[in-house]
């Protein structure tokens, strides 16, 4: 059993659920791993506080996720709104060599008290970058997906790209792939810095 528990939180319409589905699709359909996804229901997903959870098992022999809920401490936490950031504490994340990462968006979260105390916290101004570089906020999802793919190492880049091809309208594919690359580079730099800091 090599179980990974992921939680994404933000507000409805930000792409919280889409991102969770992309992670699930890459892990299960393209990487062939057992995975489950659950999401906030109905009204909450439309403008209110929204969340989604993914559980993946990297062990190829595991055919079914026995307990499909993600629980604290999480392996990965992606926080996209100030409201969801307000109740995050450092102990929400697992203490592990390979996981225990936080990804958050400083362009939507002005105050994030706990972020300073989380060493493995990667901040990417996703919404700002999406608008500035690609002209539309929707590309933020692919930036996050790129960063997550790199940080988590659960599924290969190939599986991730295949997922993007499956998810986005064909005329936006190139831009989405660029956005993915941007997120990936952010994560690579972050990991490098983290490693230097440890030495």
């Amino acid at each position: 059993m090599a179980r990974y528990e992921i939680r994404i939180a933000g507000f409805g319409g930000q792409g919280v659920i889409t991102l969770s589905k992309m992670i699930t699709m890459a892990s299960s359909l393209y990487e062939g791993l057992a995975a489950t996804q659950t999401e906030a229901y109905s009204a909450a997903a439309r403008g209110g506080k929204c969340w989604a959870e993914v559980v993946v098992d990297k062990d190829q022999d595991v055919k079914i996720i026995d307990y499909p809920k993600a629980l604290q401490p999480y392996d990965f936490l992606i926080i996209l709104s100030e409201e969801s950031a307000s109740d995050v504490k450092p102990n929400f994340l697992k203490k592990s060599d390979t996981t225990g990462y936080l990804i958050w968006d400083p362009s939507t979260i002005k105050k994030f008290k706990s972020a300073k105390r989380i060493k493995k916290g990667l901040s990417i101004p996703v919404q700002k970058l999406a608008v500035e570089r690609f002209g539309n906020i929707v590309f933020g999802n692919s930036i996050l997906f790129g960063a997550f793919t790199m940080l988590a190492g659960i599924f290969s880049e190939e599986s991730a790209l295949e997922t993007i091809r499956n998810f986005v309208p064909p005329n936006t594919l190139d831009t989405n792939l660029e956005a993915f690359e941007l997120g990936k580079q952010e994560a690579i730099e972050f990991l490098k810095k983290l490693e230097e800091g440890q030495e």
Partner: peptide, 9 residues
């Protein structure tokens, strides 16, 4: 309610 909203392959 949980199973109905669960996403799996």
């Amino acid at each position: 309610a949980y199973l109905g909203h669960l996403h799996e392959v």
